[in-house]
Deep mutational scan, measured.
Amino acid sequence: MMAYMNPGPHYSVNALALSGPSVDLMHQAVPYPSAPRKQRRERTTFTRSQLEELEALFAKTQYPDVYAREEVALKINLPESRVQVWFKNRRAKCRQQRQQQKQQQQPPGGQAKARPAKRKAGTSPRPSTDVCPDPLGISDSYSPPLPGPSGSPTTAVATVSIWSPASESPLPEAQRAGLVASGPSLTSAPYAMTYAPASAFCSSPSAYGSPSSYFSGLDPYLSPMVPQLGGPALSPLSGPSVGPSLAQSPTSLSGQSYGAYSPVDSLEFKDPTGTWKFTYNPMDPLDYKDQSAWKFQIL
């Protein structure tokens, strides 16, 4: 009977010793046993002879290597770790002494450095960015050149030099007046198309007034536009458009034309069986010896 009264063996659950049927240790109110408190290391007290050895090595170098620390530790009968900690504390003490010396050398008012006064946003004049500046400075420094007289040679050079070769001289006033084509001369031969040399188009003023001019072949195509416009036809070669000034309004060009419109200028042929003959000019830059190549039959 006494065997049943004795408590059973101890069981360990999660490293906790349980005594038989008792489960009081598993209750929430019972805390787990805490780790033992780490003991504080005792402070090391250095003797005068030990301090002399350490100070002598510190005077040589503030960062001794492990071999120098072990050698000193053997002399003063201390572990190497204590020597390492002593050098660490000695360097910190040396830095603190240097900072105190710097503070003593500075004057009393030198510690508080005078800061520059901050400028207020409204006091300083700042350039306004509302208006974009002129990058080319046209509004201040540029002045347009004065327009020359209508009959000045410089204007003629600016007008005619675009179309004339570089080897030719500017046309005088008398020749510029001949550039304007007359109405009857352009409409006299509506079906004849003559190819003149390129030099005649640039230099010869008579080429624009003769039936064999460069633009005589364009007349049949330009004249039928007159009834559609409801007024006189516009002429690209009329009046002052080739003269001194090219800047004319469309209203000033509306009254200039080749001449009176005639039914002869239409595109319809009077004789459907007729042929169109292209007159060959020996001055043509295209060297075609066979003139029969310039004739064709309209079917």
Rank of each mutant, 00 (worst) to 15 (best):
M2G: 04
A3T: 03
M5T: 01
S12G: 04
A15P: 04
G20N: 06
P21G: 07
P21D: 02
V23L: 06
V23M: 07
M26I: 11
S34L: 09
P36W: 14
R37G: 02
K38E: 12
R40D: 13
R40K: 02
R41N: 13
E42F: 07
T44V: 11
Q50R: 14
E53R: 09
L54E: 13
E55F: 02
A56P: 14
L57Y: 13
K60H: 05
D65F: 14
A73L: 14
K75P: 14
L78F: 13
P79K: 03
V85W: 15
F87H: 15
R90I: 14
R91N: 14
K93F: 15
K93W: 12
C94I: 09
R95V: 14
K102Q: 02
K102M: 03
Q103L: 06
Q103N: 08
Q105I: 03
Q106K: 10
G110K: 11
A114L: 10
K118P: 01
R119F: 04
G122C: 07
P125C: 11
R126F: 01
R126E: 01
P127D: 09
S128A: 08
V131I: 05
G137I: 11
S141N: 07
Y142F: 05
S143C: 03
P149Y: 07
S152G: 08
P153E: 03
T155G: 04
A156D: 01
V160M: 00
S161Q: 07
S161M: 14
W163D: 00
S167I: 08
L171Y: 02
L171S: 05
A174C: 07
Q175G: 03
V180F: 04
A181I: 12
A181M: 13
T187E: 03
S188F: 11
P190V: 14
P190Y: 15
A192G: 01
M193N: 00
T194C: 11
Y195W: 13
Y195N: 02
P197F: 11
A198S: 07
S203R: 11
S203I: 11
G209K: 12
S210Q: 04
S212M: 11
S213V: 13
Y214W: 07
Y214E: 00
S216P: 05
S216E: 02
S216C: 09
L218T: 00
L218R: 02
D219E: 09
Y221F: 08
Y221T: 01
P227I: 11
P227W: 13
Q228A: 10
Q228W: 14
G230Q: 02
G231N: 02
A233F: 14
P236A: 13
L237K: 03
G239F: 15
P240W: 15
P240G: 01
L246N: 01
S249Q: 04
S249E: 04
P250C: 06
T251H: 05
G255N: 05
G255K: 10
G255S: 09
G259I: 15
G259N: 03
A260R: 10
P263Q: 08
V264T: 01
V264C: 05
L267I: 15
D271Y: 14
P272D: 03
G274Q: 01
K277D: 00
Y280E: 00
N281G: 11
D284P: 12
P285T: 09
D287K: 15
D290K: 14
Q291T: 10
I298L: 02
L299K: 00
L299P: 00
